[in-house]
Structures are given as C-alpha cells and as structure tokens.
Amino acid sequence: MELIVTRNQRLAEQIFVMELSGDVGTLPPGSFVELAIPGFYLRRPFSVSRSENGSVTIIYKIVGKGTEAMSHFPVGCSVDVLCGLGNGFDVTKARKKALLIGGGVGTAPLYQLSILLKEQKIETVACLGFNTLSEIFLQKELEENCKEVRITTLDGTYGEKGFVTTQLTDIEYDYFYACGPLPMLKAVCELLPTQGQLSLEARMGCGYGVCMGCTIPTQLGPKRVCKEGPVFEKEELIW
C-alpha cells in the first residue's frame, strides 16, 4: 500500500527514524514492513518500532545505498510499503517480569514491545548495547515504559564498557525478548538459562515466504526468517 512519510529524521549516528501514515491497522510488535525504494530492485525489510492506528514507525540504520536513499525521502512523499510481514513477539509469554535485550539498530522493535508489556503490567528491564555514545537511541522512550534501562557501549563512551551480555546476570525476570546481531543473540542464548524469544536479521529476497532466500535450519526443520520468523523461540535455534 502507499503510505505517506510524515517524519524522517536522524536519531543517532547513521540511525534514522521514519514515520509513515496510512491505513496500516495495528501491526504486531516484532513484525516487519518492506519498503520499495525507487531505483533499487528488491524491497528493504524493517522491523516495526511503533505502530498506532493510522501510522507505523521504523528505525533504520544506513548500511548501503538503499538505506542511504531512504534517508533522503522528504516528508510528504509517498512510499510503496508491504505491512504486517512475519510473526512478531508473543507478549503473553512473559508472566510478571520481562527482560528486553537490544543490540544496535536491533533495539528498534523493543519499543513497541515495551509499550505492550507495560499495558499488561509486566515489569520490564531493558539492556541495550551500542558501539559508542553517538549511536545510542530510544533510551528515553524505553525509560518511560521500563523499570530500568541499562546501556553498554563497546568503547565505554557511555554506560558500562563491553557487550550487552556483561550486565544481564543479576536481573530478575521470567522471560526474555532479544533483537540484535547474530553473535549477540548467540551469546544471549548461551548465557541465559531462561526461555525467551529472539528476532533474527536475514538477507531476504521477497519477505513473504516465496523465494526461500532467508531459510535457516532449526530444531524443527527449515524455517524462513521472513515467514515463520523473524521471531523464534530460543529452543528452536541451532547455533
């Protein structure tokens, strides 16, 4: 469907936020949308960071020419978007206390999730890892919904120095939700004894399950990150 850009601005180093308005309905947290970018053959997938009736917000990192072109979309321009792709996080899995773990731009979908968890009166702690101070985003927004937000940076320019996994061990929670680079997700799975859901990133062809470009092997057989995912249960994943 055609959506209108109502906001497209820099949030942090190489990180942008884009709000698109139109009849998108309510999109599940952790589901994703795909934008067509003029001049580029394939669509680009982005997780939903915030979804309200009539608008969807994505947070994207400039990683190539496609996302670079997106950062120049003017407010008011029309974009061809496919909405409601993928499965999304299951917010009913957390019973009383949830742990959110985000790495870099993978922090984006945790925002919508934090809002829904708060509505369900789930006490939430968010642990976020970034490369450096200038790349931090969503800290304030998550602080509004979470009991605590902990931040680590790889270079120590903000918060504790190191990976996000350095500060997960003393938190009381019954279920975790994570999104970030694959090495981070692997480390999280190895470190945490509890159950959880993880949102995976993948190079996709179509984004709706027909090309098999993003298939991964799982404990339950081959699964498409775009269709059966992008959110998987910890026990399903093979590292």
């Binding site: 580029f40 053959y41 394939l42 993948a202 190079r203 996709m204 062809g205 090309c211 098999m212 470009g213 993003c214 298939t215 991964i216 092997p217 081959p222």
Partner: peptide, 22 residues
C-alpha cells in the same frame, strides 16, 4: 535445505539467487 546463506544478492534491475533447490 539448499545452499548456505547469503543466497540472495541484489543487482541493477535484477538479483542473483543461489537457493539450491530447497
């Protein structure tokens, strides 16, 4: 299961795939 990933590469006016008959 097909080939290892990545198995999609975008090109000008097209794409490469190496799915490998999953």
């Amino acid at each position: 299961l097909g080939n290892p990933s990545p198995r999609i590469a975008e090109c000008t006016q097209g794409l490469l795939n190496s799915i490998g008959l999953q």
